[in-house]
């Protein structure tokens, strides 16, 4: 690959794209996780009808490819009179999807907290709020961390589907340039390197976080 082509054509385009990708990922990550916590809590402790709805939502989202979800979203919202630009539609799709996947881990983590500990907290006179803040949340987050962390990394990769909503992210920039220059291999190799850097950084950060949150013997069956 000629260095000129790399420096003058590929890198500027991909730098533009990676910036959009990062802008896509960060709100999707935060709101998707927040949505997952709410959805997971409802699926674990909500009234039966809400649990049913939450379970159904999660099953459907997990059973349909993200690309089709974006496809539906992008085609359906205008029919309902809602006009989102490509970027907003993509972020909305990512949030809806990650919330469903996160909720699985959150729900599992909440349900795996030993009931006896909650009894012990009550027996000591804890009120609901401080029990939630001091006992339930610190344990549930630790248990959900590995799964939710993986979901963040998936999100980085699946953000490449934003092209479906005509949002010009890292992958779309690569596709555009490739369609124009017919130099698929070089362009996508470099694009791959960009993603590898993003996912490796995320994996590194999550690893650090897991180490920080590590408690000897926590989470293992006794």
């Amino acid at each position: 690959m000629e260095i000129d082509f790399l420096l003058e054509r590929i890198l500027p385009a991909l730098n533009r794209g990676v910036w959009v990708t990062i802008q896509l990922i960060i709100p999707s990550m935060l709101l998707g996780f927040a949505g997952g916590v709410v959805l997971g809590a409802l699926r674990a402790f909500g009234p039966r009808w809400l649990r049913r709805i939450g379970d159904a939502y999660t099953t459907v989202i997990r059973g349909v490819p993200l690309i089709i979800q974006l496809f539906i979203l992008y085609n359906a919202l205008p029919k309902l009179g809602i006009y989102l630009d490509g970027f907003a539609a993509a972020v909305l799709g990512f949030i809806m999807c990650s919330a469903a996947y996160h909720s699985e881990y959150i729900r599992g983590a909440l349900l795996s907290i030993r009931q006896g500990q909650l009894k012990a907290a009550q027996a000591l006179g804890f009120d609901k709020t401080s029990m939630l803040v001091s006992i339930v949340i610190p344990q549930a987050l630790r248990r959900a961390l590995p799964g939710c962390g993986n979901e963040f990394i998936y999100l980085i990769k699946y953000s490449s589907l934003a092209y479906m909503t005509t949002c010009v992210d890292l992958t779309s920039e690569a596709m555009k340039l490739a369609a124009y220059t017919y130099r698929f291999t070089e362009i996508f190799l470099v694009c791959g390197v960009y993603y590898l850097i993003l996912t490796s950084l995320a994996a590194w950060a999550l690893n650090r976080l897991e180490k920080l949150a590590y408690i000897p013997g926590f989470g293992k069956a006794k």
């Binding site: 030993r114 006896g116 500990q117 009894k119 012990a120 907290a121 009550q122 027996a123 000591l124 006179g125 804890f126 009120d127 001091s134 006992i135 610190p138 344990q139 630790r142 408690i215 926590f218």
Partner: peptide, 29 residues
């Protein structure tokens, strides 16, 4: 809650808080 603060309970399966050290288990309440 006030009553429970004055009546301690010891459980069959201990029910220590798994994410806290021995010291914090005693201190948190």
């Amino acid at each position: 809650r006030l009553f429970r603060q004055q009546v301690g309970m010891i459980f069959q399966d201990f029910n220590l808080f798994d994410h806290l050290t021995a010291l914090d288990n005693v201190a948190i309440a």
